[in-house]
Design a protein around this nucleic acid. Sequence first.
DNA 1: TCTGGGGTCCTAGGACCC
DNA 2: TCTGGGGTCCTAGGACCC
Length: 413
Amino acid sequence: MNAVAKTIFHVDMDAFFVSVEELFDPSLKGKAVVVGGQRGERGVVAAASYEARKFGVHSAMPLRTAEKHCPHAIFVNGHPERYRECSEKVYGVLNSFSPLVEMASIDEAYLDMTGTERLHGPPLRAAQKLHQKVKDQTQLNCSIGVGTSRLIAKVSSAKAKPHGVLWVVPGQEARFLAPLDVRDIPGVGKVTEKNLQALGIHRVGDLAKFDDNFLEDKFGKWGLALSGKARGFDAGGWFDTEVGGESEAKSISHEHTYNEDTGDAQQLESTLMRLSEMVGRRLREAGLHARTLQLKLRYKDFTTITRAHSLATATQLDTEIFEQIRILFRKNWKAGAAVRLLGVHAASFESAARQGDLLEGDRRERWKDVLSAADKLRDRFGESSVTLASGLKAGFRERTHENPAGLRGKGKE
DNA sequence: TCTGGGGTCCTAGGACCC
DNA sequence: TCTGGGGTCCTAGGACCC
């Protein structure tokens, strides 16, 4: 572990969703903009412009609260396709700079720049070059943190915002981290913060004073990781892995929150049908079969339950997914109770279904062909053009509407 | 403050097996 | 009858991230 110190870049796009919307509508520039939905809708802020943030608006805030804080803000629906497109463009720029690039999410990436000094110059110079290149080729601003670990790079990119570059010189990690709030450590949220505060730990420096054993005692495995992070190490989990490693999806899910709660069985089941189709489609696109299917049910009062079932044979078929989900729903829904949200979740993937007897296998193959054809039709004519009504009475199905909020929100930016 | 959607990882208890 | 100890799988829930 005493090899040459690594040089890791963390590139984080500034107010990504807002900036992309500004590319499509330049009149938004310089204004208070909230991305995530329209005024008065049920939902939360996916991203807010720096202008809106001045009024206390931040991501994950309910739209209705944002409206109160900033009545003059412009509310914009999210456009996931636009963000994906821009994200790919950003990836292209990064990849032209270094082959070791890993997109950590739609708007941030890690680069392993170890040993590139002869090509790009010293770390700070290289980061400034990349910073400019991203701006020139995408018209989007980013911030870049540079350090000897992913953790240091990530924390420093956050401190560099907006539109800045920050290098933590090797050996200075502890000094950089010590004065920061424990909340600045990725993975420390509200709950951990509170637990740490109860122990008198407020700053990263306080945390670094405690030894591993004490923290492991208090917080288990997570405490050990925390101890490492307080010292600037990528302690534990995926954070430890090499930059550029491809990781496969572990689960696929879709959920829907109603604009108004409903206790109507037919409406609920047709939503589950639609969600099952969406999950099935994603499974087929990824060439995956799922063994575990899970229903998520959130009632009006926000109490939420999940109920799962593991199949003997993994599936990627809409009908099989829906069949299980419906069983779980009928078994667990308090009949008539108003529901706020429904979700369908698939996990325990197998790359190919273990097939039963030949006849059964043949039947499944034919179904797969039918479904792939339906996927293609939906691509061409929209989500509502094809319905596999098997197991449903005619007219049973809710009209499919495009989900304007089909995008990830953003935490800290 | 009336709380989206899509993910990852972790914990904990019970079933079941050797 | 007074009862071990792992290992693994399954399910439910929760913290956290963007």
